[in-house]
Design a protein around this nucleic acid. Structure first.
Lengths: 214, 214
DNA sequence: TAACTTTGAATGAATACTCATTCATTTTTA
DNA sequence: TAAAAATGAATGAGTATTCATTCAAAGTTA
């Protein structure tokens, strides 16, 4: 009893290191997938990138597949919390929050070519991997819910007609994903400012009283 | 001389079969990548899928990498000629042609989950493979040129102001790519009709005299 | 507190396996 | 018959995973 309580309270150096290692390996995986691609990333790459020994991935994650899965989950969660943070520090109105989310999507934190490469690497494998499919779908739905609710509020506030919040939300998130693809593939032809401009162009045409193109 | 002339004129059974085999192998690659994913597709999968012997890929394509490259090129060219065909059989105006292109993008021929899976599989690997990058970029540029020119014409025809053809074209093609991603990942949440509706929603807001939402 | 024991993290050489590629042989075409 | 295409067993390079061993931290005892 005494023992159990003690262990539960303080994580101890061991526990802490374990989490540290997992994080280290996940971040190394991201770097390696960004550099070499999904198909070419080996355990040796990852562990070398992390500055750790070869056997560690199997110790902490059981298998390469599980490591990849956890990496996808990590990216998902990171993005999700960034969204909540952006909304929290934005102005109070739905339009303010929407603006903050779009700006987040093209901010250096989210819209970094290394991370985009990893997202697309996973998306490329998703069709044939049910687990990735699940993680991504769960993520997508949560995100679309947020955007849909914001659209709903904006539509009510502006008295816009002929626009469904679901249509608008799906369109906006598709647009952002498509712009990310351009940013990844032909960054010379699509600077971030253009991507932002296009997104706000889309918003301003649908919600002219809430957004401007510039 | 006679012989040479003959060979140059008619491809001959040999030449024909060679092309036939190459096509068979490429189509088998598409099926395999769609089913198993890029990373998991092996030579054995491809040749078995094609009903041919293991060594044939190396005979006809030199290496697996080259096969993949040719497969990407095949998809690119197929899409490009479908675009030209759609435009040719559309009405004469720029808006007609634009409508035809968007409809093509969501027609069964182009917007088939197997093919979408392969596109995204390649895009996922593109960052780390310069050759793919090149093929894709060349493709993208040609496509954006077509769309940009159509936008230009529509803008002039409608006297629209405050809209740049390049912005509009980039936006539209990003939107289509993003919708394809949704169609691939969560087809239950994004039926083709919705995707079409969203695309025309975007067009109708920018070019209200040329397109309607419904 | 100090000495001892147990636990489990970390290592990387060895293992076991997968898979692209080669090539000797057979079959088909001209 | 000569040349090309096709076959698939054999090869060997590359890689995920295992595991005996080392070592640091946590727990126990006196």
């Amino acid at each position: 009893m005494q023992k159990r309580a003690k262990i539960a309270k303080t994580p101890g150096k061991r526990e802490k290191n374990k989490e540290l290692r997992r994080g280290q390996l996940i971040r190394a995986t991201i770097r390696s997938v960004a550099r070499r691609g999904f198909a070419e990333t080996t355990m040796a790459d990852v562990t070398k990138e992390a500055g750790l020994s070869l056997g560690l991935v199997n110790l902490h994650f059981k298998s390469k597949d599980k490591l990849m899965e956890e990496t996808l989950r990590y990216l998902s969660e990171e993005y999700e919390s960034a969204c909540y943070a952006a909304m929290a520090s934005a102005g109070p109105s739905a339009a303010d929050k929407m603006r903050a989310l779009v700006e987040l999507d093209f901010s250096p934190k989210v819209c970094d070519r290394r991370k985009l490469a990893v997202w697309f690497a996973f998306w490329g494998e998703t069709k044939s991997r049910p687990t990735y499919q699940q993680i991504c779908a769960r993520n997508d739905r949560r995100y679309e819910k947020i955007i849909t609710d914001l659209c709903q509020e904006i539509i009510e506030d502006g008295g816009y007609t002929g626009i469904s919040p679901v249509t608008m939300a799906s369109g906006l998130s598709a647009l952002v994903n498509g712009l990310w693809l351009d940013l990844l593939m032909t960054p010379e032809d699509m600077p971030v400012e253009n991507a932002l401009q296009i997104s706000f162009f889309f918003l301003s045409h649908a919600f002219p009283n809430h957004f401007t193109s510039a």
